[in-house]
Design a protein around this nucleic acid. Structure first.
Length: 205
DNA sequence: CGGCTGATCGTG
DNA sequence: ACGATCAGCCGA
């Protein structure tokens, strides 16, 4: 009997302040059911908050509403998946309420279920390096634009309860690779689990 | 370990 | 043109 998505977090979880959601996503578990029925999963260890209209690093900055970004304008709880650098995808969860185009980027996971298969697929034997980056986790979990707009509370892609870190285990730091965002570049909008070997980039001291 | 580079293409 | 990236390669 396969795990159902009944354990998924309710969509209301995402319809709150984006920093809160990004922080509380730490420790929760992302599930992906593949076409062949296989279920892969990983514990979220690193996220980033993107704060919409005023955030120069956010795709919806200044109210940009395009084919790519329009899902961010929906109510929280949908997947926002986009292509980056012509070759990778990034997975976000839309946060806040309709008209507030904000999202939380899932940056790294601790592999849980389907580890052998994920090792094989990523040709990576070190468990810490299988899902430690937004592009890598999308590749291994087969997440692409076909999942854009998918409700994150049901198969084939959902998030369920996991082992949450204590408040003191949560590290806030600057977001990665958004140097162009000027004063927003150094805002502490990245959340990670302290000392986790599964994160993408170690926060500075 | 840290820094640099090319790959590759949808979006604006 | 450029990017919410990554693997590979280089030098220390």
């Amino acid at each position: 009997m396969r795990k159902s998505s009944k354990s998924a977090l309710p969509l209301q979880f995402y319809q709150r302040k984006t920093e809160i959601v990004a922080r509380e996503l730490l420790g929760q578990v992302l599930y992906r059911e593949l076409l062949n029925g296989e279920i892969l999963s990983g514990r979220i260890v690193e996220t980033e908050a993107y704060l919409g209209l005023t955030d120069k690093a956010c795709h919806s900055y200044g109210g940009r509403k395009t084919n790519r970004t329009c899902v961010m304008y929906e109510n929280g709880g949908l997947a926002y998946v986009y292509l980056i650098y012509g070759m990778y995808h990034c997975l976000n969860v839309v946060t806040s309420v309709a008209g507030q185009p904000e999202a939380a980027l899932i940056r790294a996971l601790e592999p849980l279920r389907g580890i052998d298969f994920m090792k094989f697929k990523s040709r990576q034997n070190k468990i810490e390096k299988i899902l430690n980056g937004p592009g890598k986790l999308c590749k291994v979990l087969e997440i692409d634009k076909k999942l854009n707009g998918h409700g994150i509370d049901s198969s084939p892609l959902w998030i369920g309860e996991g082992d949450k870190p204590s408040p003191r285990q949560i590290v806030k730091s600057a977001r990665i690779n958004i140097g162009y965002a000027q004063e927003w570049a150094h805002q502490p909008l990245r959340f990670s689990i302290r000392h986790s070997p599964f994160i993408s980039v170690k926060p500075k001291a």
